[in-house]
């Protein structure tokens, strides 16, 4: 499916050679293939539907180009639209100093690792990071954050033996400020978006420490659930950005489109490995060709 979407589209549009304009009818088969591709890339079914509608609107009435096949022409339109959607909003973080960032997300998505990656990257930019351990549940979560903090040589605030996360956050913040640090990152425990009690906890933490950025960290291979996750977290703590992790794997990452479309929160960073420098700003064009699986065709069309 991955490689063959191009072929499928070319096939579906074969009868179009010589036709003057793209129309709803002559694109129907091709758009069906696109829908199947989006769905198997884990794009949410509703998002896939509205995306197809949008593409249809863009295409209908366009002249069929002479230089490329109609299939390739559609791919280019789809790819451009996808890139534009994914890239809306900025990957920039707030310029405030001190800069306070709160990390949230499901269990095992990569929050703790990303906390360290972000601190490491921003330290290079001249920030003085301070990590605050706000996961009091997962066994050895504090040890994990302390370990990565040591690896990147930044201080880490932790308080064992109390479950009062908002209080820990507040104390961590004042300790960090007192030592003159200007980038404070709060690593929180993994939680399901339907766990009301734990969602209350991050809402309260947010009220107390008033972060400038609230980043949702999501496994790049997440399925249809992504929509519920992004929506609920956004409603609860008003996300300012999304981080897609584990993109060093081969997941198609359709969830990126779903989450962006449902929340309009920009995707800011990508996790690309377990090492603490395997981290990058989000590139919408790469993600678009990843979801569609056909970057080569796009460059081909671009040259035409």
């Amino acid at each position: 499916m991955f490689e063959s979407l191009t072929d499928k589209l070319t096939n579906a549009m074969r009868h179009l050679r010589g036709t003057a304009k793209l129309s709803e009818e002559n694109m129907a088969e091709a758009l069906k293939e696109v829908r199947a591709a989006l769905l198997s890339a884990d794009v949410h079914f509703k998002v896939a539907r509205s995306f197809i509608e949008r593409v249809k609107e863009k295409c209908v009435g366009q002249d069929v180009l002479k230089t490329v096949t109609p299939g390739q022409q559609i791919i280019k339109i789809i790819n451009d639209e996808l890139t534009a959607l994914l890239g809306e909003g900025s990957t920039e973080l707030s310029k405030k100093k001190p800069l306070k960032i709160m990390m949230v997300g499901l269990q095992g998505g990569g929050k703790t690792t990303t906390t360290a990656k972000l601190a490491k990257a921003l330290k290079k930019d001249g920030y003085k990071p301070h990590l605050v351990a706000c996961d009091v549940y997962r066994p050895a979560a504090i040890d994990q954050l302390e370990t990565v903090a040591r690896q990147i040589e930044v201080p880490c605030f932790a308080k064992r033996g109390t479950p009062d996360v908002p209080a820990i956050g507040e104390e961590g913040l004042s300790v960090a400020r007192a030592s003159g640090d200007d980038l404070i990152i709060f690593d929180t425990a993994g939680r399901l978006q339907i766990d009301e009690q734990l969602i209350e906890e991050i809402k309260e933490l947010k009220r107390r420490v008033n972060p400038d950025e609230v980043l949702l960290v999501v496994d790049g291979a997440i399925g249809q659930e992504a929509v519920n996750v992004a929506k609920t977290f956004n409603e609860a703590v008003q996300l300012t950005g999304i981080v897609m992790t584990k993109l060093d794997g081969d997941a198609r990452g359709g969830a990126a489109l779903s989450m962006k479309e449902i929340t309009n929160v920009p995707i800011k960073f990508a996790g690309t490995g377990e090492k603490l420098d395997e981290f990058d700003v989000f590139h919408p064009d790469r993600m678009a060709s990843r979801i569609l699986g056909m970057g080569d065709v796009v460059s081909l069309v671009e040259k035409a």
């Binding site: 890339a41 095992g108 659930e225 081969d250």
Partner: peptide, 10 residues
């Protein structure tokens, strides 16, 4: 992870 999508097949 049960919340992952099609990549778990791969």
């Amino acid at each position: 992870d049960g919340s992952l999508g099609s990549n778990s097949i791969e």
